[in-house]
């Protein structure tokens, strides 16, 4: 159609302006600021990055992010996959799915309070008010301070809350993909005498690989930015700090904008690498 360009400018203009102002330019500016000192006055080269990679407490945040990356991603994706396959076989699938998916609707701050309460600790002998410690005591154990015992117990406790929130997301996407696998393919394998595990391993699983890749990528990109859960549940105390919380602290507590920017750039770099790998594999698969 003739004269489309002015129309296009009118349609795209507001979005381009807003996206440039809120995303593109600030991102570039942050990369630039990461080479300057705390007030962004003097150029300091790679000092901020050197600090990130040598300071002990930032190192701890890196380690925690890595723990989140492995345990959270594996936990959400595997539980989502397990549930997608299992729920397909029962009649109350819709109800069960709603239950697992429900935490996705509420805020991470709210979920943080829910799990802080689940992990609530009372000394041995006192009545427990947290469900988890009540279970431990009922089974004959001693109550534990789940959010304080470092380094494994409290970090895994936080990650558990994260898995509780995000498993429903993985479930919904994997379940849709699972239902997309032609049923006669599965039936044919069963008629040939394959057991359920073999059918899953050799037929269903390969069909799910592309979706698993998408879901895993999404979880990795999410987990690098994890903030709310840690902020509400421990505020990074007792060795539970992660990168996003560190950046918040650098900004508002230490007032060091150079270091805060450098943390942000690290987050950006990880997200970009994961995305590029994913797009490349996607293209390869399309090309085959």
């Amino acid at each position: 159609m003739r004269g489309e360009k002015p129309w296009a400018a009118l349609f795209v203009g507001p979005a381009v302006l807003l996206v440039s102002f809120y995303l593109v330019l600030p991102t570039l500016h942050t990369v630039y600021l990461s080479f300057f000192d705390r007030n962004s006055r003097n150029f300091v080269g790679l000092d901020n990055y050197r600090y990130l990679f040598t300071n002990a407490s930032v190192q701890a945040a890196f380690r925690n992010n890595l723990l989140w990356l492995v345990v959270f991603t594996a936990g959400t994706v595997l539980l989502g996959l397990l549930l997608a396959v299992l729920l397909d076989r029962v009649r109350y699938e819709a109800v069960a799915k709603s239950i697992i998916f429900l935490p996705m609707a509420i805020s991470f701050a709210g979920a943080g309070v829910i799990w802080r309460f689940m992990y609530a600790y009372r000394p041995e002998g006192a009545a427990q008010i947290g469900l988890l410690n009540q279970l431990v005591v009922a089974l004959g154990g001693s109550p534990r301070a789940w959010l304080i015992e470092q380094p494994w117990v409290n970090n895994l406790a936080l990650i558990g809350a994260g898995v509780w929130i995000w498993t429903g997301f993985c479930l919904v996407i994997l379940s849709a993909a699972y239902k997309g696998i032609p049923r006669d393919m599965l039936e044919a394998a069963r008629v040939d005498g394959a057991n359920e595990l073999q059918v899953f391993r050799h037929i269903s699983l390969p069909q799910l690989y592309p979706t698993l890749a998408v879901v895993t990528t999404t979880m990795i990109i999410n987990v690098m930015k994890v903030f709310d859960i840690v902020y509400v549940m421990t505020n990074g105390q007792f060795g539970t700090e992660v990168l996003a919380n560190r950046m918040y602290k650098e900004m508002f507590q230490f007032r060091h904008f150079g270091r805060a920017s450098a943390v942000a750039v690290v987050l950006l770099a990880v997200a970009t690498v994961v995305m590029v790998i994913n797009i490349r594999r996607f293209r390869e698969e399309e090309g085959r």
């Binding site: 991102t27 990369v31 600021l33 930015k225 805060a260 942000a264 997200a271």
Partner: peptide, 9 residues
């Protein structure tokens, strides 16, 4: 995929 963190400052 850009983390919002890179835009805050």
């Amino acid at each position: 995929v850009v983390p919002l963190q890179t835009t805050f400052i």
